[in-house]
Nucleic acid binder design. Sequence first.
DNA 1: CAAGTTTTTGACTGATCCATCAATAATGGA
DNA 2: TCCATTATTGATGGATCAGTCAAAAACTTG
Lengths: 191, 191
Amino acid sequence: MARPRKFDADAAVEAAMETFWTKGYTATSTDDLINGTGMLRGSLYNAFGSKRGLFELALRRYRDKGAAGQNAIQADRPPLERIRWLMLSGVDRTVADRRGCLAVNTVTELAGAEPELSALARQCFTQLEAALVEAVEDGRAQGEIRADRPARLLARQVMSAFHGLLVQAKAGYSPQSLHETVDAVVADLRV
Amino acid sequence: MARPRKFDADAAVEAAMETFWTKGYTATSTDDLINGTGMLRGSLYNAFGSKRGLFELALRRYRDKGAAGQNAIQADRPPLERIRWLMLSGVDRTVADRRGCLAVNTVTELAGAEPELSALARQCFTQLEAALVEAVEDGRAQGEIRADRPARLLARQVMSAFHGLLVQAKAGYSPQSLHETVDAVVADLRV
DNA sequence: CAAGTTTTTGACTGATCCATCAATAATGGA
DNA sequence: TCCATTATTGATGGATCAGTCAAAAACTTG
């Protein structure tokens, strides 16, 4: 039928996601994307149309991988431990690589100029919120988590604290300080 | 002695701060700064040296104004009310203008590429944290705020929740949802 | 008024930006 | 084998980027 692609489109989107995550949307040049994906200029544009289009694919991928990651949180450990682990792992990763959360980065960078991309990033929040609501309801059923507030409200409290902690981690706060705050947030969920 | 400046340097830095706050550092062009300040290209470079230099001044100004704003929080109302008001006003402003906090935006955009600017933004956090510690200690002295945790830890909890809420606000979460979360965070401070 | 100093002015630079394009190559089906 | 279709390749494009410069202007001091 036609000449087959030499590259793996999935791998290219993944590589682009990493590049955007590291440098941010505006600061990522098409050259950066070429280096990151290993593709040539023309191929990249033939396949993805534009820098914006590729970013959109990368952000969708981040969202979908996040869903997978949040499923892993549905392990068999106690719900409070799962919530604690989610925050600790995110914080520790950010201390290590200084990249934070791609969705948070996208909202803070682009909410003003690119409402559609911001809305896509928001879907990541909605997804995380849903996973947290589920964990809170589990913990409540097990008598581990307080029942005096809607689960969704507790989930939003956790999510806002988490995202704020990622910013602190990116800003260079010490792991010790961050871990203490995580534990305090978790403690406030207890019955 | 010499030809006097036609522009007000303070006002120019202020205008640049607004522009950077609205568009972000990378996405702000020198033309944007020229339009924002009303200065001509050469004058702007003669006065401030570079885009980066002007951003640094703008960020310092943001920090120093924040200090002033946080003093206003030291009003005569009850400490819990002051903390609540701080969060509500920040959240409402962000719902209205979609700009969030310049320090948070700077950290998420530039922590990887510009550690010095990120460190400057972190000073804004340190300052806010100090104001919160003071409010928490006040509230504790008045028997309003729990005493089972270090004031600094409670302050960091509030700050992380606050910054996370600013991200949610920028992402388009409803004022109602945001206000509920603010109230829950405040409630968790009570004895 | 003249000398000395700094600012203003806007044209100019080279680099980099995102994107396009024509030519070539590689495949499957007729 | 030849055609239709799609991908690769890398040169090229105009726009915009941050930053510079020389000339003219506006002030103070002597």
